[in-house]
């Protein structure tokens, strides 16, 4: 039986060691909020994808990385609330030359810049995955920044279906 207990033994120690502050004890304007919201705003805002890319990358050139980037995402997402996406870059991961950052971007999301992963050579391989939300059918891009500053990008369309009989 591949039930809970069997699986559990294969897992590491788990559970929260830190406790969240109870909701409501943080009022608007506390340093915790300002810091946290500020941090996220540095990454993703409600903006157009063009504005977001300009804000983050300025006018830096991006090379077509389709040959090096394996962007794995279902072509049809029956459910935009949970779409598994992973990015694997065929590139060295040595201190001298490695993939520094990987951004995941969904063009039509209200917050198009979804996530940024910052990697170190300890990873051994430029690979990250996350479950993301897609509001509607959209292109999803992976943008890769290498340690020498080179930017590579690849994209794939994901069709998102909706609820009800028509979905």
């Amino acid at each position: 039986m591949a039930g809970a207990m069997t699986r559990r033994s294969a897992l590491g120690t788990f559970g929260a060691v830190g406790a969240a502050l109870a909701t409501g004890t943080l009022s608007i304007g506390t340093p915790a909020r300002a810091q946290a919201q500020g941090q996220s705003q540095a990454l993703g805002l409600q903006e157009s994808v063009q504005d977001g890319l300009k804000r983050v990358f300025g006018g830096r050139p991006m090379k077509d990385g389709a040959a090096l980037i394996k962007l794995d995402i279902p072509p049809i997402a029956e459910n935009g609330a949970v779409v598994p996406v992973s990015v694997e870059v065929n590139a060295p991961m040595t201190p001298a030359s490695h993939v520094k950052s990987i951004w995941i971007v969904a063009d039509k999301n209200r917050i198009p810049i979804i996530a940024k992963a910052t990697l170190t050579p300890e990873a051994g391989q430029a690979f990250v995955g996350a479950n993301v939300r897609l509001g509607e059918t959209t292109d999803v891009r992976a943008i890769v920044e290498q340690s020498d500053g080179t930017l590579l990008t690849a994209k794939r369309e994901v069709k998102v279906t909706v609820g009800g009989c028509g979905g």
């Binding site: 996220s40 990454l43 209200r110 992963a117 990873a123 990250v128 996350a130 993301v132």
Partner: peptide, 10 residues
């Protein structure tokens, strides 16, 4: 690795 995230994550 470190991930910076937004509300577009599930």
């Amino acid at each position: 690795v470190a991930f910076d995230l937004t509300q577009s994550v599930s």
